[in-house]
Amino acid sequence: MKILPELKELHSEMTEWRHRIHKHPETAFEEYETSDFVAEKLESFGIEVHRGLAKTGVVGTLKNGSGNRAIGLRADMDALDLQELNEFEHRSQVDGKMHGCGHDGHTVMLLGAAKHLAETKNFDGTVRFIFQPAEENVAGGRVMISDGLFEKFPVDSVYGMHNMPGHEVGTFAVRKGPIMASADFFEARVIGVGGHGAFPHQTTDPVVISAEIIQAWQNIVSRNVDPLQSAVVTVAQIHGGHTGNVIPEDVVMSGTTRAFDPAVQDMIENRMRQLAVGIAEAHGAKCEFKYDRRYAPTINTADETDLAVAAATELVGDVNVNKDVTPVMGAEDFSWMLRERPGCYIMIANGAGEGSCHIHNPNYDFNDEILPLGANYWVQLTEQILTREAN
């Protein structure tokens, strides 16, 4: 691996930053201490700081030279509602919250890159360091966009990175096109007529109707989605009734859907609503259907993916960059930024073998070994893109 000597020297300090953030995890839109820390560091590097987008978001702006190109580099800052089971010294000090997805590491890698770029200024143009809150569950990226992120801080392209447990340190993975799915969430309330369980003919049973709706929804993937496409419809919760001899007045179902293609996403929502409302009405009941498009599909644009591949290849070699990684049905709210600007979302390996642990696990911890590599990727990408304008 080619890592700049200055970033190697910064490794121990970056590790200290990461452990500090890990000890004090904060969840969606409550990243007050984390955003204070990020803003203080950026200001100490001589970077212009703006705060307040999506409540706790931080944007740093670094300009150099006369180039008029601008790029955005994004890191997420929030933790999970999860009880940490690790016993090391930097474990979470907040009950029921932990950095179980590595956002502490993402934040620190971008801070390390910001420090180096502010010191060396080996680029021509503008870098926006975007520290985003609330990636988990509530799509803080969408809120930053609606708060005017790219109107206030224009960029030509935007880039994101996530750690990838289970893969050897010193490797990257990416692909052109969809790399992660949409994540939409639905709730359907079937309203019937309740009554005694011994006299079902005197009721309009929302339990039976709900069962029929669930079965019909499963046919969307098998009969409405092109077999060469991918989609998921999952009913994760069903609530109705309080005792065994009473048919309830209503039943509430909720869950999630996933797709890589926005057209498939549209079709799923429409078909779910049609089936739920139609089946309920056919049985003399009503259905209230709500659908929340919380995470768009994460779709990498071709030219920007080539730039990301080139940056990663320069650091770890062509053989260590998987350029056609299999997309996953997990979701990422960086997708909302990619809907507004071209860009690329890349995976950096977090380590494999004994001691490695997947994200969203109470035993997970970000691998400090990759902090300089991740920071160097951001530096390489920035200098590579913003040097082109000068040439």
Rank of each mutant, 00 (worst) to 15 (best):
residue 59 V to I: 15
residue 166 G to S: 12
residue 74 R to Q: 12
residue 184 D to Q: 07
residue 283 H to R: 13
residue 25 P to H: 07
residue 99 H to S: 02
residue 33 E to A: 14
residue 374 G to M: 10
residue 383 E to K: 03
residue 191 I to E: 04
residue 129 F to Y: 10
residue 390 A to F: 09
residue 48 E to D: 13
residue 96 G to I: 00
residue 280 A to N: 01
residue 224 N to G: 01
residue 264 V to M: 02
residue 292 D to G: 01
residue 361 N to G: 10
residue 288 E to W: 00
residue 191 I to V: 15
residue 202 Q to T: 10
residue 320 N to G: 12
residue 136 E to H: 06
residue 284 G to R: 09
residue 357 C to A: 07
residue 261 D to P: 05
residue 29 F to N: 02
residue 261 D to I: 12
residue 341 R to V: 03
residue 252 V to Y: 00
residue 231 A to C: 08
residue 267 M to N: 06
residue 170 G to Y: 08
residue 326 T to I: 14
residue 170 G to H: 09
residue 224 N to A: 12
residue 264 V to C: 00
residue 328 V to S: 14
residue 117 L to Q: 00
residue 376 N to F: 04
residue 211 A to E: 04
residue 173 A to H: 02
residue 9 E to H: 09
residue 235 V to C: 06
residue 347 M to C: 14
residue 174 V to L: 15
residue 265 Q to T: 12
residue 225 V to C: 10
residue 64 N to R: 07
residue 313 T to E: 15
residue 45 F to H: 10
residue 11 H to D: 03
residue 119 E to N: 11
residue 366 F to L: 04
residue 63 K to M: 07
residue 285 A to W: 01
residue 322 N to Q: 14
residue 184 D to H: 04
residue 154 P to D: 13
residue 187 E to M: 04
residue 208 V to M: 09
residue 16 E to D: 10
residue 206 P to R: 01
residue 181 A to V: 01
residue 328 V to P: 00
residue 54 A to R: 02
residue 282 A to R: 05
residue 83 Q to L: 04
residue 231 A to F: 05
residue 91 R to M: 11
residue 217 W to L: 15
residue 15 T to C: 09
residue 28 A to D: 05
residue 174 V to I: 15
residue 257 T to H: 03
residue 341 R to N: 13
residue 161 M to E: 10
residue 34 T to Q: 13
residue 366 F to R: 01
residue 188 A to R: 00
residue 338 L to W: 09
residue 22 H to W: 09
residue 101 C to T: 00
residue 366 F to E: 04
residue 258 R to F: 02
residue 385 I to D: 04
residue 315 L to C: 03
residue 39 A to Q: 00
residue 168 E to N: 14
residue 248 P to Q: 05
residue 361 N to F: 00
residue 193 V to F: 01
residue 390 A to C: 06
residue 263 A to I: 13
residue 185 F to L: 07
residue 12 S to D: 15
residue 363 N to R: 10
residue 299 I to E: 08
residue 20 R to P: 00
residue 317 G to T: 05
residue 158 V to W: 08
residue 389 E to V: 14
residue 92 S to W: 05
residue 57 G to D: 11
residue 128 R to S: 11
residue 301 T to H: 10
residue 160 G to V: 10
residue 198 A to P: 08
residue 179 I to N: 10
residue 266 D to W: 02
residue 252 V to T: 11
residue 382 T to K: 13
residue 75 A to H: 02
residue 104 D to K: 11
residue 362 P to C: 04
residue 325 V to D: 02
residue 278 G to P: 04
residue 223 R to P: 11
residue 130 I to N: 13
residue 152 K to W: 02
residue 328 V to R: 12
residue 215 Q to H: 14
residue 175 R to M: 07
residue 244 G to V: 12
residue 295 Y to C: 03
residue 84 E to N: 03
residue 353 G to Q: 06
residue 369 E to F: 01
residue 43 E to G: 14
residue 282 A to N: 11
residue 265 Q to G: 06
residue 182 S to A: 15
residue 321 V to H: 15
residue 196 H to M: 09
residue 143 V to M: 08
residue 301 T to V: 06
residue 245 N to R: 07
residue 270 N to H: 09
residue 122 N to K: 13
residue 388 R to S: 13
residue 14 M to F: 12
residue 6 E to R: 08
residue 271 R to Y: 03
residue 216 A to P: 07
residue 241 G to N: 08
residue 117 L to M: 06
residue 177 G to V: 08
residue 12 S to W: 11
residue 222 S to M: 15
residue 115 K to I: 05
residue 373 L to V: 03
residue 119 E to L: 09
residue 259 A to K: 01
residue 375 A to L: 05
